[in-house]
């Protein structure tokens, strides 16, 4: 878990850097651009978490492919404003005792719709671990930014 944390921190910082560099070209403070930027940061956080975990886990695989698909769809929509049809694979699942709760959990864990209940629980455990470490690291990054910015403000 520690190596995952380090990997995640490294990847996330790198992608944040990339975002910043890209942002400078199209600088703007309107609400839409800020919202778009927020989404980009969020996607970067999830993507770097998933890529730090690697393709061993089902949830990270599902998350990465989802992000990739979204990006491709976005590009396609931009290029030729035509809706792309996505093929949805339905997997037959066994009956679960409390379907509503399990369905809720399936929606929360990426890729959970195609899992059976056992592996869903397994993936959920790992996903929770990764989310907690992600939150820790993001929080420390924010703290670092804020402290450095405040010290900068004092200096200027």
């Amino acid at each position: 878990m520690r190596s995952i944390k380090i990997k995640f921190a490294y990847r996330f910082l790198r992608s944040l850097n990339n975002l910043n560099r890209r942002r400078r070209i199209t600088d703007g403070e309107s609400i839409t651009t800020r919202r778009r930027r927020y989404h980009m940061v969020k996607t970067a956080a999830y993507a770097s978490m998933a890529s730090a975990v690697g393709s061993k886990r089902a949830w990270s695989r599902a998350l990465l492919s989802k992000i990739r698909n979204n990006r491709r769809n976005y590009k396609i929509r931009r290029e030729s404003s035509s809706s792309s049809s996505s093929v949805v694979v339905k997997v037959k699942k066994p009956i679960i005792q409390n379907p509503s709760k399990a369905e809720e959990l399936e929606k929360l864990v990426p890729g959970g719709e195609t899992m059976d209940f056992c592996s869903l629980l397994d993936e959920t455990a790992h996903y929770i671990k990764c989310l907690t470490s992600q939150v820790q690291i993001m929080r420390s990054i924010v703290q670092f930014y804020e402290s450095s910015s405040s010290s900068n403000d004092q200096r200027y």
Partner: peptide, 22 residues
């Protein structure tokens, strides 16, 4: 899980703001 995901959202929002500011 929902609270964690919300925290991630919140943190990325904050990061975006901090990032753009500084």
């Amino acid at each position: 899980i929902q609270s964690l995901q919300r925290q991630v959202e919140f943190l990325s929002m904050k990061l975006e703001a901090v990032n753009s500011r500084m």
